[in-house]
Simulated assay, not measured.
Amino acid sequence: FGDLDKGPYSVPLHDDRLSYANNTYCAFIRQIPSDQAFYLCIHMIIVIFLCPTIVLLSILIYLCNPILETKLFLATLVGVIASCCAVYYAVPQLYHYLFSRRGSPIIFNRKTGKVYVNESYFFNFKFLHHPSVFLQPKKRRIKEYDWDDLHGVIIHNMSRNALSSTVLMVCQPGTHQVIDHIMLDPMRAGAGSTFVWGWINSFMVHYKSANIDDGEY
Rank of each mutant, 00 (worst) to 15 (best):
L18D: 04
A210V: 13
I182S: 04
C51G: 06
S58M: 12
Y89G: 03
Y62K: 15
C85E: 12
V115S: 04
C84D: 01
M169D: 04
V167Y: 02
S159W: 06
S120I: 08
Y97N: 13
I67R: 03
V11I: 09
A162G: 01
C41G: 07
F49C: 14
I45G: 07
H96F: 12
S132K: 14
Y207M: 00
F49S: 14
H176N: 13
P33L: 05
I107F: 04
I46Q: 15
M158T: 09
L40R: 11
L18G: 07
S19P: 01
Y121S: 06
L98M: 11
S83G: 06
N23C: 06
R30A: 08
F134P: 05
K139A: 04
I200P: 01
G192L: 10
K6G: 13
D35P: 00
F99A: 05
L4I: 10
V80F: 04
Q93Y: 01
H156A: 11
P137T: 08
R188P: 00
E69M: 12
T24L: 01
S209L: 10
C171R: 06
F28H: 04
A162N: 08
R17D: 11
T194N: 04
A75H: 10
D185W: 05
Y89M: 06
I81L: 11
I107V: 15
R188K: 13
V167T: 06
L128T: 14
V170I: 14
R102L: 13
C84F: 10
N161T: 11
N65Y: 09
G103L: 11
E119Q: 14
G198F: 03
Y95F: 15
S104F: 01
Y207P: 00
V91Q: 04
Q36P: 02
F1V: 12
T70E: 10
S34L: 13
S202L: 03
P8V: 07
D149L: 03
L18S: 08
C51I: 15
L57K: 13
Y116S: 11
Q93S: 12
W147M: 11
V170R: 10
P8A: 10
V55T: 09
P33W: 02
